[in-house]
């Protein structure tokens, strides 16, 4: 009887472990940023021409951080969820542009300028967007995929990383934290 119970317990444990492995989804996508509460790496990337009148030919993160906290959103034209979140980012920009700077970074999308322009047109994006053609900045930010959004305090440290499409509610919650810090 004891032997049967031991065999049953081992089988149940292994079965439970197997089921947990199957049902736990894609936890790798939710890995916390290695840069959390540390200084993010600055970048200096070329801007889409439509934003150059305000910011110049390139946008430097370190320079912009002198002024206000920054939200860095990584996107690509082939990424479906990026289309879902773009209107939320534009809405947040219209409401909070005096408090934070939102920067769009087109990444992992080499050479897709025309498609990038079409993306910006489609959602009437008015916050600055830069081009990370060789994905170097996406490596610097430890990107797992797109979209990902980074909330950077004025002192250059990372407050929060959001994986996947972001909503206006989440943006407002984190903007409140950014401006309070």
């Amino acid at each position: 009887m004891t032997r049967v119970l031991v065999v049953l317990a081992i089988t149940a444990s292994l079965g439970g472990l197997f089921l947990w492995g199957l049902l736990r989804g894609s936890p790798d996508r939710e890995v916390e940023s290695a840069r959390l509460n540390r200084q993010v790496i600055s970048f200096d990337l070329p801007l889409y021409p439509r934003f150059q009148g305000t910011f110049g030919p390139t946008l430097n993160l370190a320079t912009e951080l002198n002024d206000k906290p920054v939200i860095v959103n990584f996107w690509a034209t082939w990424c479906g969820p990026c289309y879902d979140e773009a209107p939320h980012l534009q809405a947040a920009w219209q409401r909070y542009q005096d408090d934070v700077l939102i920067i769009g970074v087109q990444t992992q999308d080499r050479g897709k300028r025309v498609e990038g322009e079409a993306f910006l047109d489609r959602f009437g994006i008015t916050f600055p967007n830069v081009i990370d053609d060789d994905s170097r900045v996406s490596i610097d930010y430890g990107l797992f995929g797109v979209p990902e959004t980074f909330f950077v305090r004025r002192d250059g440290t990372l407050l929060y990383k959001h994986t996947g499409p972001i909503t206006l509610d989440k943006l407002e919650e984190k903007i409140a934290e950014l401006t309070a810090s």
Partner: peptide, 10 residues
């Protein structure tokens, strides 16, 4: 270099 950006996960 990669560990600094992605953590031990990489």
């Amino acid at each position: 270099f990669f560990q600094d950006r992605y953590g031990d996960w990489i």
